[in-house]
């Protein structure tokens, strides 16, 4: 049994009448690359804010390293490196000032590593934050998140709004963090392609509810995609037991299902249709079939 670094139990959160999170429970194992996926407004940032102690759990509980991040912010935040979606950095500081400023907060700040990252990201230590480009801001934010060698790296939509080069760099840094340190990475994204490449565990949020949460291997193993063919064109989408989604037209239809597919296969055959192809769907197909 792998030790967990984050435990969320029955977390529910409302903002006014709007339910942002509904009974969310998840466990993040140490050393995993955990991808949190969902559309905009699905509750990803709200969940991350609870983990960082920026929101108090009103219903349910949140434990990071076995501690409550609201009650013990020093014990928790000192071991987390965080890159928020809006990358709020003080505009008036220079890069070198920003590095010294952050160093003061983190006893584990590694000066040599910070300098190495600064050179690697081609950041000029004399440059002011206000004059940085979007990509440079993301790099600077990532430097601040990494240089104290955190046990958990939390990235909220790390690549949103970035050009492919910087996106690649940010993802590369995630890859290196895991390869070098064996540390835990938690990142949210609505880019399923990038989650499928980098993550080994995935949680899917939809309208505040957890739709699936498991290792990527397990999620893929549980889902099947069939292409079925009828003798006659079908006017409407065939209703099949256990099907998450069924799309197509005429004689050929693509069906996605979760778990035991035997019942579905039986139903297909009973209708005189044949299965012409069976494969495992991509994460994107799984996600779309789950939320639509």
């Amino acid at each position: 049994m792998v030790e967990s670094v984050i435990e969320v139990r029955g977390l529910t959160r409302r903002f006014g009448k709007k339910s942002a999170l509904h009974d969310v429970s998840l466990t993040i194992p140490r050393g995993s690359v955990f991808g949190l996926v969902g559309e905009n407004g699905a509750g990803k940032t709200t969940l991350l804010k609870h983990l960082l102690g920026l929101l108090r759990a009103e219903i349910g509980s949140v434990r990071v390293f076995g501690r409550d991040p609201v009650a013990d912010p020093v014990g928790v935040l000192g071991r987390i490196g965080c890159l928020s979606e809006d990358r709020d950095l003080p505009d008036w500081m220079r890069i070198d000032e920003l590095m010294r400023y952050n160093q003061a907060f983190y006893p584990t700040w590694d000066e040599d590593y910070a300098d190495e990252l600064r050179r690697e990201f081609a950041l000029d230590s004399r440059q002011r934050v206000s004059t940085l480009s979007r990509g440079q801001r993301a790099r600077a934010g990532l430097l601040m998140a990494l240089a104290h060698r955190p046990d958990i790296l939390v990235l909220d939509e790390p690549s949103s709004g970035l050009d492919p080069v910087v996106r690649q760099e940010i993802l590369g840094a995630i890859v290196r963090t895991v390869a070098d340190e064996g540390r835990t990475v938690l990142f949210s994204s609505h880019l399923l392609d990038e989650v499928e490449r980098v993550a080994d565990h995935v949680a899917m949020l939809h309208e505040g509810r957890l739709m699936a949460c498991d290792s990527l291997d397990q999620i893929r193993r549980q889902h099947h995609r069939f292409i079925i063919r009828f003798d006659q064109p079908q006017d409407s989408s065939p209703q099949l037991p256990g099907a998450l989604s069924c799309c197509g037209a005429g004689q050929e239809w693509t069906v996605l299902c979760n778990g035991g597919s035997e019942e579905l296969v039986q139903a297909v055959l009973a209708r005189g249709a044949t299965i012409v192809d069976e494969a495992s769907p991509s994460l994107e197909e799984i996600f779309v079939s789950r939320v639509s």
Binding site: V33, Q168, L171, G172, V175, R176, V178, A179, D180, E194, R197, V198, A199, D200
Partner: peptide
């Protein structure tokens, strides 16, 4: 190396 290929392809090193 595992690390190098992971970085090159931008995929999880464990993969």
């Amino acid at each position: 190396s595992v690390r190098k290929l992971a970085e090159q392809l931008v995929i999880n090193p464990n993969t």
